[in-house]
Nucleic acid binder design. Structure first.
Lengths: 156, 156
DNA sequence: CTCATGTTTCAGTTGTATCTGAACTCAATG
DNA sequence: CATTGAGTTCAGATACAACTGAAACATGAG
């Protein structure tokens, strides 16, 4: 039965990896993320990850740096232990949603630059982009606010 | 001056392509999308796109199919003309936002599957994913509703 | 029905991202 | 201050996605 569970976990890890590959991560990064979602204990060393996922230390090192930079993994050093441990931060999703602001800003830049080069008589296309960006510039902060409230009410 | 404008447009097209490449599209698809944002007329044939962007007909054909499937480009056939023309639909952004629902559903599946394989004592990680998904399952439809209102008020 | 134009498909090429393994750096411990 | 284990870096191998060009296929016009 414990083997069955191990298989199920491995299968789950692959599913998570597949999901995130569509989201721009590499396969290895997805595997790490999936493993960190269900492993026991929650904190894992690079060696443990490499071993469990059958990846080289090099890959794990590189991907962990990417994931750490993206705020999807947290590195902590337990005092008195040489090895650093990695885990998914509790607020991973809040961090990810925070990056949406950057994407909206990118669209804002595209909309502004577009106005400058669009044929003067036919600005409807850029105009509709501008409209959409304005909507999100207004709504996204409100949504983040509601998320905060939601999480506070759930008491986590 | 008209050359300056042409250059500025080409530059803009590359910027749009760069933006969408981060969003998962290929370079060629991004170029097409960028061109269709500022070209005159707004409707373009495959041959015009291939010529303006220096792409092969094969690439254009393939990418247009992808973009059409994603709802980011619209194909129309003008009667009496053999060539089909392509353009960005006015409601492109609404269509794109509609696909978010699918992504949320994907996360829901991951959360549910995760509960089944997580170590019973340590469900906090999956729990926090589940929480986030619940939030968006509730909020996303409301956001789409507000978008509808917003667009109606702007009278487009 | 045949021709000409427009479009799709696909085998092959090219370019690039990813992974590995080995050499290297760093830091803690005896 | 030498040793050992952890982690990083990078050159080379591999795999894969994207693009091209040519050939097959469609469709409207004459």
């Amino acid at each position: 039965m414990s083997e069955g569970t191990a298989d199920a976990r491995a299968e789950y890890v692959r599913r998570v990896a597949a999901y995130w590959e569509n989201g721009g991560l590499t396969h290895a990064a997805g595997l790490i993320l999936g493993h960190l979602m269900v492993c026991e204990p929650a904190e894992q060393t690079q060696a443990e990850l490499a071993d469990a996922l059958d990846l080289s230390m090099g890959s794990v090192s590189t991907q962990l740096r990417t994931l750490t930079a993206a705020g999807m993994v947290e590195r902590t050093r337990q005092p008195g232990s040489r090895a650093a441990v990695y885990q998914v931060p509790q607020d991973m999703w809040i961090r990810i949603l925070g990056t949406e602001t950057t994407r909206i800003a990118g669209l804002r830049a595209l909309a502004d630059a577009g106005l400058a080069v669009a044929p003067p008589s036919r600005r409807d296309r850029i105009g509709s982009l501008d409209q959409m960006v304005r909507f999100f510039e207004h709504e996204w902060p409100l949504l983040e606010q509601r998320l905060d409230e939601f999480l506070r009410k759930e008491g986590s």
